[in-house]
Deep mutational scan, measured.
Amino acid sequence: MEVRTIKVFTTVDNINLHTQVVDMSMTYGQQFGPTYLDGADVTKIKPHNSHEGKTFYVLPNDDTLRVEAFEYYHTTDPSFLGRYMSALNHTKKWKYPQVNGLTSIKWADNNCYLATALLTLQQIELKFNPPALQDAYYRARAGEAANFCALILAYCNKTVGELGDVRETMSYLFQHANLDSCKRVLNVVCKTCGQQQTTLKGVEAVMYMGTLSYEQFKKGVQIPCTCGKQATKYLVQQESPFVMMSAPPAQYELKHGTFTCASEYTGNYQCGHYKHITSKETLYCIDGALLTKSSEYKGPITDVFYKENSYTTTIK
């Protein structure tokens, strides 16, 4: 009895394709271990004539594949690729409408935090270190965002349907971005203890939790000093293409032309909904596939993004 075979390709990165001759009487799992086709788990399936010449994702289970996976995804987590594939199996079914010149995501599976993050990423200057993220990001900007969303979920250790947080998501993504040249110098002034300067680099240099107003941050924000008295913390120097200011959701007025974009969060910790506000020729609110415009805006804002380049204080 002759062994019926077909020729397929296996890959971990969709760049390096490895030619395989597979036995049609055995499952993919018996031949390769966990195997995925377009995100779908085909591990328990036997090869079919229609699979001839198709590319299958496999887990990096030998040295060659491990090197290829690390170079593309910059992670050695053995569960990463499987999590990416199972997320992709959902995100490829989502709709990605162009809204006001940006790629958004039609609401499904509690994905409003991903839509808000995706919209924000198209408006701030950011370059990702893992080629996987950078490639998928370019495709997302062009309207094909399924891979990018699935990668975000995998890097953030999230599953489809789980509630997510924009600030946490951005923080994970910033860790995989090139923020080497970003720098922030802060000064804390206390009447009792004097003053202390701190220099922050990388992710810490672009994120701040405690106030939404970048102007206020430049002037000074009140913080408790270690001595128990009130101290003032203010920005001395900022070198970065953008800054992200966050605070627990509270009524906040966004003035046209003073910011790049913002995240609105309605609801409580267990259950809520994100919308995205962007400042173009007027203010726009993007909620999944829905767009509304207004000249002014007041609502429960939790993150505001500002364009920056270089700032030095005039406070002496």
Results as ranks from 00 to 15, higher is better:
residue 46 K to Q: 13
residue 245 M to D: 00
residue 285 C to R: 07
residue 266 T to L: 12
residue 188 V to S: 07
residue 12 V to G: 07
residue 108 A to I: 07
residue 233 K to Q: 14
residue 97 P to D: 09
residue 283 L to V: 11
residue 157 N to K: 15
residue 186 L to G: 05
residue 291 L to I: 13
residue 70 F to G: 10
residue 127 K to Y: 09
residue 96 Y to P: 04
residue 160 V to R: 04
residue 158 K to C: 02
residue 135 D to R: 09
residue 28 Y to S: 06
residue 222 Q to R: 14
residue 258 T to Y: 08
residue 219 K to S: 11
residue 58 V to S: 07
residue 249 P to T: 00
residue 135 D to P: 01
residue 233 K to A: 12
residue 259 F to M: 02
residue 280 K to V: 09
residue 90 H to F: 10
residue 244 M to K: 00
residue 64 T to N: 14
residue 316 K to Q: 15
residue 170 M to V: 06
residue 134 Q to P: 04
residue 247 A to E: 02
residue 50 S to D: 14
residue 253 E to D: 09
residue 31 Q to A: 13
residue 240 S to M: 01
residue 236 V to R: 04
residue 124 I to M: 06
residue 98 Q to N: 12
residue 234 Y to T: 11
residue 273 H to K: 00
residue 182 C to T: 04
residue 71 E to N: 09
residue 48 H to Y: 12
residue 149 C to R: 03
residue 75 T to G: 03
residue 54 K to L: 13
residue 103 T to L: 06
residue 294 S to D: 07
residue 298 K to N: 14
residue 89 N to T: 11
residue 246 S to K: 00
residue 119 L to G: 04
residue 89 N to V: 12
residue 36 Y to N: 05
residue 17 L to S: 06
residue 77 D to N: 09
residue 30 Q to C: 15
residue 294 S to Q: 14
residue 80 F to Q: 04
residue 192 T to K: 13
residue 299 G to C: 01
residue 6 I to G: 06
residue 33 G to I: 05
residue 41 D to T: 12
residue 190 C to F: 04
residue 296 E to A: 15
residue 254 L to A: 02
residue 86 S to Y: 09
residue 116 T to H: 06
residue 116 T to A: 13
residue 316 K to C: 15
residue 199 T to L: 07
residue 36 Y to S: 05
residue 136 A to V: 03
residue 43 T to I: 05
residue 121 L to G: 03
residue 268 N to S: 13
residue 229 K to F: 08
residue 29 G to C: 10
residue 81 L to A: 04
residue 146 A to L: 04
residue 43 T to F: 11
residue 13 D to W: 02
residue 298 K to S: 12
residue 2 E to Q: 10
residue 137 Y to S: 07
residue 5 T to G: 09
residue 113 Y to P: 05
residue 243 V to M: 05
residue 149 C to F: 01
residue 268 N to P: 09
residue 93 K to I: 04
residue 80 F to K: 04
residue 254 L to D: 00
residue 127 K to W: 06
residue 15 I to Q: 10
residue 277 I to R: 00
residue 71 E to C: 10
residue 77 D to K: 06
residue 44 K to H: 09
residue 43 T to P: 04
residue 161 G to H: 04
residue 121 L to I: 12
residue 287 D to A: 00
residue 126 L to H: 04
residue 245 M to E: 00
residue 169 T to H: 01
residue 240 S to N: 01
residue 228 G to E: 04
residue 192 T to H: 10
residue 146 A to F: 05
residue 221 V to A: 03
residue 33 G to S: 05
residue 174 F to I: 02
residue 53 G to F: 11
residue 210 G to H: 03
residue 259 F to P: 05
residue 55 T to K: 09
residue 12 V to R: 08
residue 213 S to A: 05
residue 303 D to F: 01
residue 160 V to P: 06
residue 183 K to I: 09
residue 97 P to L: 14
residue 86 S to W: 15
residue 111 N to K: 05
residue 205 A to W: 02
residue 308 E to Q: 09
residue 33 G to N: 05
residue 308 E to Y: 00
residue 30 Q to S: 15
residue 94 W to T: 06
residue 302 T to F: 00
residue 54 K to P: 04
residue 85 M to S: 04
residue 37 L to C: 11
residue 258 T to C: 07
residue 37 L to S: 12
residue 51 H to S: 06
residue 90 H to R: 12
residue 56 F to Y: 09
residue 124 I to H: 01
residue 311 Y to R: 08
residue 156 C to T: 11
residue 160 V to N: 02
residue 275 K to S: 09
residue 275 K to D: 02
residue 266 T to M: 11
residue 268 N to T: 11
residue 256 H to F: 11
residue 199 T to R: 08
residue 112 C to F: 02
residue 216 Q to F: 05
residue 120 T to W: 05
residue 278 T to G: 07
residue 259 F to W: 01
residue 307 K to R: 12
residue 20 Q to P: 07
residue 196 Q to R: 12
residue 113 Y to C: 00
residue 282 T to W: 08
residue 50 S to I: 13
residue 228 G to Y: 01
residue 39 G to D: 09
residue 205 A to Y: 01
residue 301 I to K: 00
residue 308 E to F: 07
residue 73 Y to F: 08
residue 216 Q to I: 08
residue 167 R to E: 02
residue 53 G to A: 13
residue 304 V to Q: 00
residue 176 H to N: 07
residue 112 C to R: 04
residue 128 F to Y: 08
residue 269 Y to W: 14
residue 105 I to C: 06
residue 34 P to Y: 15
residue 237 Q to R: 12
residue 52 E to Y: 11
residue 203 V to E: 06
residue 191 K to S: 13
residue 273 H to S: 01
residue 6 I to F: 15
residue 188 V to R: 09
residue 268 N to A: 15
residue 195 Q to S: 13
residue 220 G to C: 03
residue 110 N to R: 06
residue 93 K to D: 15
residue 80 F to E: 05
residue 135 D to G: 07
residue 115 A to H: 01
residue 151 L to E: 02
residue 165 D to T: 02
residue 16 N to S: 10
residue 206 V to M: 03
residue 84 Y to T: 03
residue 248 P to R: 13
residue 40 A to D: 14
residue 53 G to N: 15
residue 276 H to F: 15
residue 303 D to Y: 02
residue 145 A to L: 03
residue 204 E to T: 07
residue 139 R to K: 12
